[in-house]
Design a protein around this nucleic acid. Structure first.
Lengths: 214, 214
DNA sequence: ACCTGAACACCGTTCAAGT
DNA sequence: ACCTGAACACCGTTCAAGT
């Protein structure tokens, strides 16, 4: 039975990769498996459960996908996870539409959270602050990857980005002062790297604060 | 014609507030307006454009909703926007399902971005770093609000949160060390405040780095 | 135990027709 | 110029029936 379920999830993920999340329906998945739509229900439960399964197959397996050796220093572990998360969402953009809406309750997600917990503890963050910082770090990384994948940053062309600060009643002051910088194209790899640098800096600052306060 | 469009958006937003985003269809909105589904099309274009309009009505009006005086110091402006964003998503949880997928291109969103640009410039962040930091700050704030609204943090009950680190092959090391802390309930208002504190700290650090480097 | 087929109550959108 | 009504090609899911 789990064999059948795996095959169904494989088909659904492949379909989403090829034709987007909207192309994934009980009917199209069933057709790909070679079966009637209703035959899926005993194995996957519902459409919602199917989507959860697809998410677990991809983003849920992050802790296994990050190529970091066992006893690696915390910086390396965190960066490894960050890169792996961004690569995962780039490879499966449909996952971006789902990550924020489903709690990280599967075994795979829990393993990833545990990895981040250990990294933060290694970095010297006080226990009391670790769960919050885990949520902050993962929200930041997932948020960036999702924004990039779904187009929230609107980075199709940077000329629009510079000019959109000009409204009917003249240019907005902030956009005006940044006109030069906004005219240049953005290197998104470099930006993600700089964000990870800043997150490291933040983790260190919280760790230092913990040393002084306690 | 814009009168009609406003009425349609009002109806759609009210419907989403009352019965969720899934209850918003061209048919249900039309019924509420007292018209045939097809009569909506000349005014809103399509279902996707209707959703964009709804988003602009709510999250798009943030810069106007944040109750911050004109010449306020940058910390106050950023915090005001942060609180307003979280309150907006709490009041309209359906907006959480849309924010990440649509680029911030409307006049309202651009005004909000401009406010953040000015705050970061006031804080002393070098021009070159301002756009990136705007994206980092807004991704963080929106990411937190969305995670909270859509349940990614899984905060229904914290006993589950503590116990889910225990898998078939024993407890995970990070969860184990944090067992005490994870058993306590989370104060989400306090967490959001602490995150804003840390963002301020980060902005200051980047500003300081800019002073030294240049 | 597992799968099928018909049916129900929905979708967004096109198109020809009305006033 | 604005709206209607019928229709098309889809959805997820229930339920009774088949083997």
């Amino acid at each position: 039975m789990t064999l059948r379920r795996d095959g169904i999830l494989d088909a659904a993920v492949a379909l989403a990769d090829e034709r987007g999340l909207d192309a994934v329906s009980m009917r199209t998945v069933a057709e790909r498996v070679g079966v009637t739509p209703m035959a899926l229900y005993p194995h996957v439960g519902s459409k919602a459960a199917l989507l959860d399964g697809m998410l677990d197959r991809t983003v849920g397996q992050l802790s296994g996908a990050a190529p970091t050796p066992a006893g690696a220093p915390w910086r390396q572990v965190m960066r490894g996870l960050g890169y792996a998360a961004r690569a995962m969402v780039t490879a499966h953009p449909w996952a971006a539409e789902l990550v924020f809406s489903r709690p990280a309750l599967t075994e795979g997600s829990v393993r990833t959270v545990d990895l981040i917990y250990r990294s933060l503890l290694d970095a010297g963050v006080p226990e009391r602050e670790v769960p919050r910082l885990e949520r902050l770090v993962s929200t930041m990384v997932i948020g960036f990857a999702v924004s990039e994948a779904l187009g929230r940053f609107g980075y199709e062309d940077h000329s629009v980005r510079a000019s959109r600060g000009v409204l009917a009643d003249g240019p907005l002051p902030g956009f005006g002062r940044l006109a030069g910088v906004l005219g240049e194209p953005v290197d998104w790899d470099a930006e993600f790297n700089a964000d990870l640098d800043d997150l490291e800096l933040l983790v260190e600052a919280v760790a230092r604060r913990g040393l002084l306060g306690d």
